[in-house]
Amino acid sequence: MEVLMKVTDAVKSLRETRLSGIRPPNEFFDYQRVSRPADFNQATSRISYNTRYFSGNYLLVIALLAVYALITNPLLLISLGFLVGGFAAINKFAPEATQVGEHTVTQKHLYTGLFVIGIPMFWWAGPFGTFFWLIGASSVLILGHASLLEPGVESDYAAIGETV
């Protein structure tokens, strides 16, 4: 129960800090502000500003790409469901040792069986390829968007506020 409370607190903290800063779609997809940067320095400054300004939107993009990656890799989804579901089922339904015939089955035996089946299944599903695809796809999308979108007028005022 303690773990569930920690996860709930972490989700609340994430929602309050990152997701509260999600910019509206008309601002995030403002095609009138799209232009090619003049040089590498301008691209770098745009990336620096836009990654801070649109951090909530970029986190949402990464989450959507992760969901897409799981949906398009059903074996990975099944293996994750097997491992997480098995872990939860063992904790819920088998907290104490059970007698099966002449053998006593403990939680340790059940976890061993779960991992002997689940880890090779997870490995076979190719989590590393999915993970590196997620890194590459999100990097291309985020860096491309951040470098091509001109900062708004509010960025000029942000620079003035920093110098005062």
Rank of each mutant, 00 (worst) to 15 (best):
L59N: 09
G56Y: 04
P120T: 14
A125Q: 02
Y49L: 14
P120W: 09
I142G: 05
I71V: 03
V61M: 09
S155H: 12
Q99Y: 06
M121C: 06
T51R: 07
G85R: 00
Q99V: 04
G144D: 00
F122L: 09
L148C: 13
K12Q: 10
S35N: 13
Y58V: 06
S138Y: 00
P95N: 14
W123C: 08
L14Y: 09
A137Y: 00
S55T: 12
A97V: 08
L65V: 00
H103P: 03
L110G: 03
Q42G: 08
S147E: 03
P151Q: 08
L70C: 13
S79D: 07
S48M: 13
S155F: 06
L14R: 07
G152C: 01
A38M: 09
I119R: 06
P151R: 04
I22W: 04
A159L: 13
R52L: 11
V34M: 04
G81T: 08
R33D: 02
D39G: 14
I142Y: 01
T8R: 14
G161R: 10
S45C: 01
A63C: 01
G21H: 04
L64M: 09
T98E: 11
F82W: 04
S55D: 10
E150P: 00
L14M: 04
T72Q: 12
V164Y: 11
V61F: 10
P127E: 01
R18L: 08
P74H: 00
I119L: 15
G152Y: 00
R15H: 11
N91A: 13
Y157S: 13
V140P: 13
W124R: 01
H109E: 15
K92I: 05
A94D: 10
Y31S: 12
G144R: 02
E16P: 03
P74E: 03
M5E: 14
T44S: 15
L141A: 13
V140S: 14
I47K: 00
R46C: 10
T17W: 12
F87R: 15
G56K: 03
L80R: 02
I135L: 15
D30M: 00
W133M: 08
L75D: 14
S138T: 12
